[in-house]
Nucleic acid binder design. Structure first.
Lengths: 329, 329
DNA sequence: GTAGGGAAGCAAAACGATTTGCATGAATGC
DNA sequence: GCATTCATGCAAATCGTTTTGCTTCCCTAC
C-alpha cells in the first residue's frame, strides 16, 4: 500500500516501464491512446515519479541553497531580517519557476559541515573576502553564485550590487541637501558593499577621521553608542551615512537623545530600504536595491551555471528613496 | 576527473565498496587500520558520499519544506515579513542540527504543482481551514506538521500557538489600562490564530459591532482605512486590538491623522511582536510568541513524525510585552 | 584434533527512475 | 516482391549507495 513505483504502474497498464517513462518525459513518442491510459492510471493510483531516483540518474536533485556568512541568528534577527530574508523569499519564487527548491542554510550551527544534502548550486549573500563558505562549496565542486561580488574573486559569477554607485548616490544627496560635515558608519566585515561604501566615502567626503567601521553583529546598539560619541566629539557633524540600516536606527536614537532635530540639524541616510528605514521616525532616506530583481538575477545566473555557462551580471541601478530624514524640498 | 564514487575509493584503497561503506557509516566493524587508510584516501581524493544515491536507498532526501498558504510576495513583503521569515530562519537552524535542510516553498508560483523535489516532510505555517496545501501534501503522503493548528483537523500534529490565551492576555491588558470600548481588527482568513482571537474577543469584549474582519493581504492600508472609519463612526472607542501587526501599523497612522493621542485617548495592542511593533511610534504593546522555540518545536515534531511517532505539542505561553502604546504605569 | 566463535571482508541484490540499442509489425516506395 | 522507413514498445544497463548473506581465517576451549 506504499507509494506506487514506475513498475507498479507499468504492470497495471500492461506496458513496460520504458513506455511509462517516455509517456511522462515525452523524450520519445508513445501512442496517444497508451499515453492517456497511463496518465489516467497514474492519477488514479496516486503515482508520482520518485525525485530521488530521478536525482540519482540525472545527477541533479533540484535544490539550491541560499547561504549567508553572517549567522542566521543575527542575519534573521531584527537587525538584518529584511535584507537576507527579502532575498530569500524572492529567490524561492524565482527558483520554483525553474523547478528548483530553495534551501536556507545557516552557517555551521552544529559546528560541523552540512554533508547530508548535496545542492545543485548555492547562492552566497554578500560573502566576505576569504569567506569559508566559498572554500567549502568549491571543495565540493558546487556551483557558486554570489549576491554582491566576492572580494578578490572576480572569477566567481555574481550579481554586482553596484554598491559604489549606491554610496555615491547617498553621499551626493546629502551634499546637495547642504551637509558639509558627513560621518560614515560602515560595517567592518570585508564585504564588497562595505568596501565600496568606504572607498566612495573616502573619495567623495574626504574626512577619514569621521569614518567609523563597526561590527555588523552589534547592530543598532553599536550604531547608537558610536553616534552618541561622534556627535559629542564633533558637534559640527550635520550628516550621517549609515551603510547598514541597523546602524542608522541607532543613529536616529542617539540624535533624539541629544536633542538633535532630524533633518534640520542632522541628516541621516542609509543603504537598504527595509522596514527599519520605512518605519523610522522620521522615515529614512534610503536606496531601493531592487532586491526581488537581484534575487531573480542570482537564481537565473546560478541556473545557467548549473547548465554550463558562466558570467557576471549587473543589478539594475539602485534608486534613491528620499524621505523626511533628509528633508524633502 | 569528475567526482570520485565509492567504488573509485574502494579500488584505490584495495578493498570492496562494502568495506568503504561500513568504514563511513560504522554499521559494522572494520579494522581500524583499514578504516584510517580509507578515510585518509577519501580526504585526499575529495570523496563525499552522494546524497542522491543515499536518498534513493534510504527513502529520505534530507529536506523538509516550510510553506505558508499566504503568497510569499505578501507574506514576505513588508507586511508579514517578520512572522514567516522569523520562523523560517529559526527552523532552518533547528533543521540543520538534525541534518535536515529547510526549503522555502512559495505556493504555486507558476500555477502548477511543485513536483520536482519530494520532501521528507513539511511545516505549514498558520494554515487555513481546508487549506489546499494540506490536501496537496496529504495526497503525496508527505508528513505534515503545522504551526498553529489546522482548523477542523485535530489529527494533524501541530504546535499550538495558544492564540486564544494570547488574545485574552491582550484584551485583559487593555481592560486593566482602563479601556471600556474596544474594537478588534482581525484577519478574515480562517486560520486558528484569527478564529481564536475572534472567539476571545466575543467572549471578553462583547461588542460584536466593533469587530472588523479584514483581508490580511491588504495589510497596513486596510488597517488604516478601517480604523479611520471606525474612529469617526464611534469616537468613544478607546482601545484597539489588532490581531495582525500590519493592521496595527495602519491603526496608528489613522490615530495620528485624527489627532488621537496614543495612549492617552486610544490604546493599541497587537499580537506579533515584530519589527513593526518595536519601531512604531509609539512602540506597540505586543506579545512575545517565542517564535524560535515554536520553530524548534515544529521541526522536532516533524522529525519525530518522519521517524514514526506523532502528537501535538503546546508552545510556551506567549508573554505580554507592554510598551508605550498602552501606557506603562 | 575438532568444534565453536569472532573478526574482517566480499559479492550481489536492492532502491526507482532514465536511456540506449534492438525487435516487431505495418506502411511505403519502386 | 523486396527493401526501406516509421511507429511503437521492450529488455537491460546505469546512476552510487546500503545492506544481507556468505566466506575466509584465526584463535580458543575442551
Amino acid at each position: 500500500m506504499s507509494k506506487p513505483t514506475i513498475s507498479d504502474l507499468a504492470r497495471a497498464a500492461g506496458v513496460s516501464v520504458t513506455t511509462v517513462s517516455h509517456a511522462f518525459s515525452g523524450r520519445r513518442r508513445v501512442d496517444p491512446e497508451t499515453s492517456k491510459r497511463i496518465h489516467a492510471l497514474a492519477e488514479q493510483m496516486g503515482y508520482h515519479p520518485s525525485s530521488m531516483a530521478r536525482a540519482l540518474r540525472s545527477g541533479r536533485n533540484g535544490t539550491i541553497a541560499l547561504a549567508s556568512s553572517m549567522p542566521f541568528a543575527v542575519a534573521a534577527g531584527p537587525s538584518r531580517l529584511g535584507f537576507l530574508m527579502e532575498i530569500a523569499a524572492s529567490a524561492a519564487i524565482s527558483a520554483l519557476t525553474r523547478d528548483l527548491a530553495l534551501c536556507l542554510i545557516p552557517p555551521h550551527p552544529a559546528g560541523k559541515g552540512y554533508a547530508s544534502v548535496g545542492f545543485d548550486g548555492v547562492i552566497l549573500v554578500e560573502p566576505m573576502r576569504d569567506d569559508p563558505l566559498v572554500a567549502h562549496f568549491e571543495q565540493r565542486k558546487t556551483p557558486i553564485v554570489s549576491v554582491g561580488t566576492v572580494p578578490g574573486r572576480p572569477d566567481i559569477p555574481a550579481v554586482d550590487m553596484r554598491s559604489g554607485e549606491t554610496a555615491a548616490m547617498l553621499l551626493d544627496h546629502l551634499a546637495r541637501q547642504g551637509c558639509r560635515h558627513i560621518a560614515a558608519l560602515i560595517g567592518s566585515a570585508p564585504r564588497t558593499s562595505q568596501i565600496e561604501a568606504e572607498a566612495a566615502f573616502r573619495t567623495l567626503a574626504a574626512s577619514p577621521d569621521r569614518l567609523l567601521k563597526l561590527s555588523e553583529e552589534e547592530g543598532e546598539e553599536i550604531g547608537y553608542r558610536e553616534t552618541l560619541r561622534l556627535l559629542r566629539d564633533d558637534p559640527s557633524i550635520d550628516g550621517i551615512f549609515a551603510a547598514v540600516d541597523a546602524f542608522a536606527s541607532g543613529a536616529v536614537r542617539a540624535a533624539h537623545e541629544l536633542g538633535r532635530v532630524i533633518p534640520d540639524q542632522l541628516r541621516i541616510v542609509t543603504r537598504y530600504d527595509g522596514l527599519r528605514a520605512k518605519l523610522s521616525q522620521p522615515p529614512l532616506t534610503a536606496v531601493d536595491l531592487h532586491l526581488p530583481a537581484v534575487a531573480e538575477a542570482a537564481v537565473h545566473l546560478l541556473f545557467d551555471r548549473i547548465e554550463g555557462t558562466s558570467r557576471t551580471v549587473a543589478a539594475e541601478l539602485p534608486e534613491l528613496v528620499v524621505r523626511q530624514s533628509t528633508a524633502v524640498c
